[in-house]
Nucleic acid binder design. Sequence first.
DNA 1: AGCGCGTGTCTTCAGGAAAC
DNA 2: GTTTCCTGAAGACACGCGCT
Length: 518
Amino acid sequence: MDLINNITTRAELVKRPNQIIEANTQLPIPGLAQKLFIYTNTFHNEDYSKPITFKLSSFYGRYVGGQNLKDVDKACQLLKSSMIMFYTPIDKDSGLPVIIGKDGDVGLLNKGYRKEYVSIFDRIVLDKTKVTFEYSDNLLPYLNAKSNYTTYIYGNIRQMRSKYGPKLYDLLSRGIGFYESRKITVDDFRSVFGLEKHKTYQSYGRLKQSVITPSIKDINKNADIEVSLKEYKKGRTIKVLEFFFSGKVDHQQRENDFASSMELLNTEFSQDATLKNTFDNFIHLYRLNNNCYKDVEAKIIDPVMNEKILGKWLSEIITEHAGGSREKFIIGVQNNMLSYIMNGKTSLNIEATPATVESSIKETPAEGAFGNIEIVINQDELNQPAKQAPTSYKFEPVNIPCPEYGTDQELFKALSTKLAKKLNHFGTYDFSTKKFGEWHQVYLDELNNQLFVFYKDMKSLGIGNSVIRKAIEVFVNDLEEYQVMKPLKKEIRDLRNAVQRNEIFPNKGTFAKMINDW
DNA sequence: AGCGCGTGTCTTCAGGAAAC
DNA sequence: GTTTCCTGAAGACACGCGCT
């Protein structure tokens, strides 16, 4: 556990004054702008009277692209012109403002109170990928409140995509850990969200459809709480909302999660080498410091990605063309073999034993037929001296009928170009012959030049060239249609970022879900 | 490695109309 | 007053590419 604690990153703890959270917003501050506003409140250790500067990559928690800069530009313009309004009750005797919310639920819209319109930021400077926020002087007294504030971890809202999700989390977070629910009138809700003047949202149905429901969905998906809604009617009109939420995972819970993770690793997953190793790698994330991290990531991404793609690809072949059932196959790269493959001590051969000749060559599956694919690691080769990765390959053109593409050469040129382009997701991709039209063997020489997967002699699959053609189609289609890479990369990156920020800890459920999703 | 600009894709928002 | 359906617009994100 000491090593886990060695993961040192800035704790992105949001500290928000309740007065600001619950203030009337004149216009909605949507998604990204809201997140930027909230993110500035993670710098509470600094003096808010001074400019707050941060890199957008730290805000996003990832690489920042051009479109992001445009988005931020828009959001900054909007934030600069945003203002919030405080309804401030005045103490009769002292003439000083009374803090709203100090002693419970003071209505936000009580009439007769002093109204104070305050712009949020004096100046916002967007300098390439750095952004600087300067708070309005009049907001400083509210920001520097010594009490009556709410804290939560920024990571809870970072991944939210809905327009009002971050705002709802912001609003509800105040009660988390203290209450089971939070009540708010529909009018107050509109006020806090800046939707009072919004014509459409005068209708509660609309408000619910476009604001409340998506926000709850967003929170349940991305944050550490589960939110549900109860509505209270007066007559036929819904007047009050009650948001129920479950509490945050506490430190003890995290400890327990770790224990249960280890238990899972040693029991259930121990029956499945691939899952066990995948899981094991994740556990390592919690143990290694940042310097070691890249290596771990590489080890995770490579086999998982390969397994994902190869597994899906091959299972498609069998399912669609040999009528196979998935249970019959052994598909995937065994992690414990990875180092041998990476060091060139062995190659990975994929071989197949068709159950029947008929099933193996037909376009449509034969009734009751199945294929049997095994990934075979040649044990003898493990004991041989490491091989040098070959620098050239001999390709034998094959004649594959594919009328829709005209000739085989064109088919493979088209597909392989796509394939090569898509495979750039992995890293450098190089067909040694530079001739795309000569695919007899499909050779992928990539993955940081460390791992190569050798589809040796596709004919040994015994399922015909039409299957090869189909397989490549499926492969390309898979990459394009389902974008296998994106979610995988994203999940792993998200996890990594979260871990680095010490925000989450994997538990049994998380892993079961992730692995199941894969 | 970081920056700036661009593209493609998916999801959500928001408005109208009509039914309940 | 509320809900449902439909649709175009907009938001948000991931990633490519060329440049420094």
